[in-house]
Structures are given as structure tokens and as C-alpha cells.
Amino acid sequence: MNHPSAQNKKSGALRRFIQKYESSFLATSAALAFLLLWELLPDLGLINPFFTSSPSRILTASQWLFAHGFWKDILVSLEEFSAGIGLAILLSLPIGLMLGWYRRLNAMFEPFITMLNATPRVALIPIIILWLGIGIESKIAAVFLGAFFPLVVNVMAGVKTVDETLLKCARSFGANDQQVFSTLVLPTSVPFIVAGMRLALGRGLVGVVVGEMLASTAGIGHMMTLASSTFQMDKMFVGLILLAGFGYLLTEFLKRLERKYESWRS
């Protein structure tokens, strides 16, 4: 009862502190608890580390891998991924814009795209390997096929949401098709493109890994297949964690990108 206001202020600051850091605190402790259990359960003899590995075993395996040229595998996978994704973005934007905009082009190619988009792209990888060999070309193609279709389908959908009055406005100033694309259709499609990117990055990763697992001479997927056929669970987990981390980074990157181009919304 002495200083009720000071008391309130203090607890208010504390509450704000808790509110601010609560979710990151909870996430960190859950992750730590999981790692701890994963480490301890095999040591206590409750589960068999041959199947589950454990954080310390994975760490040791990764040290061994990096000392024995694992960098090269990572670089190969990165190269395949970025080339495939880059190609998919470069081609899907103009193609998506054209197919979304021009009614006749749409009528010609839309069924084709819808069908290929519905085909599990993984099923195409064996064919691609026969066409392009076991080098990085076939993996680039696998990433491209995974990423291109969700992007194209999303860009096409975005084009159709262009505001009718804004289009009239652009035309009233004498805008030609190319100007309508760059000043109106593309900005309108940004949320759709970002949604397409989200799918594309995930499918692209699938393309790299599956491609490398089926036939390759290097790459993260290649290393994992080798480790699997020789029962080296620890090494497989190194690959898995790397892929998960990479996927997470890409998602965060997309969020940044979205925030930058969509800042006018907030």
C-alpha cells in the first residue's frame, strides 16, 4: 500500500518485457528440451542411437564431413538450386503475364500448364536424367520443373485481379501493353508472385534432393543416399538438418522481400 503507482509501473515494465520475449522464450525452451531428450534418451538406453542418432553424434559426423570435402557437395546443390530457380523466375514472369493477359494464348496453353502443374514433377525426374545425364544439368531441370509451374499459375491468377478502373486509367493516358504490364499488372501481381515463390522454393528443394538421390555424382542428396546405403544415420541427419535450415532461411528471405515490396499495405 506504500507506493501503489511505483509498484504498478514496475510490474507494467515486467509485463511488457514478458510479452515481448514470451514467444521466443517458449520456442527456444521447447527446442532445447527436444534436443536434450534426443541426446539423453539414447544414452539412457531407452532408444537405439543406430536409428535415431543424437545431437552430439550429428555434430561429430558434420565435423568429419566438412573435413572431407562436404563443401563441394553443398556448393553443387546450391548451384543446381539457384540456377533452376533463377531460370524458373526469369521465364515464369513473362510467360505468366502473357498467358494471363492474352485470351487466345491462354486458350492455347492453359490446359497444357494445368496438366503439367497437376503432374507430380518427381515422376519426370527419371526421364530427365535419361535426357540430360547425371551431371548438374538434370538437377537444374528438376528444380526448374518444380518451381516453374507454381510460379506461372500464380502469375496468371494475379494478372486476372487487375483493377478494371486502373486499367481504364492507364489506357486513358495512352499506355501500351508493355507499360500496362510494368506499371499495373506486375505490381498488382506481387502478392501472387510471392505466394508462387513460396511454393516454388519448396518444390525446387524437392527437385534438387530427389534428383541427386536418383542419379548424381555430388550434392547433399548424393551424400545422403551414400550414407543411407551404408547405414550411417548420423551423416544422413547432417544432410537433413542442412536442408531444413536452408528451407527456413529461404522462407525468412521471402518474408523480408514481401515486407519490402508490400510496405504500402501496412
Binding site: C169, F173, G174, T183, V190, E262, R265
Partner: peptide
Amino acid sequence: RPGHNRATVFQSAALMPW
């Protein structure tokens, strides 16, 4: 066709939100 000698003020403001 549209030309530089005319301009239209639209019923809805038709501004580009971005």
C-alpha cells in the same frame, strides 16, 4: 483513341495503392 489532349477524372479515385 486516348490522347494527350484529353484526361479523365474517374468516379472512383482509381489510385494505385502501391
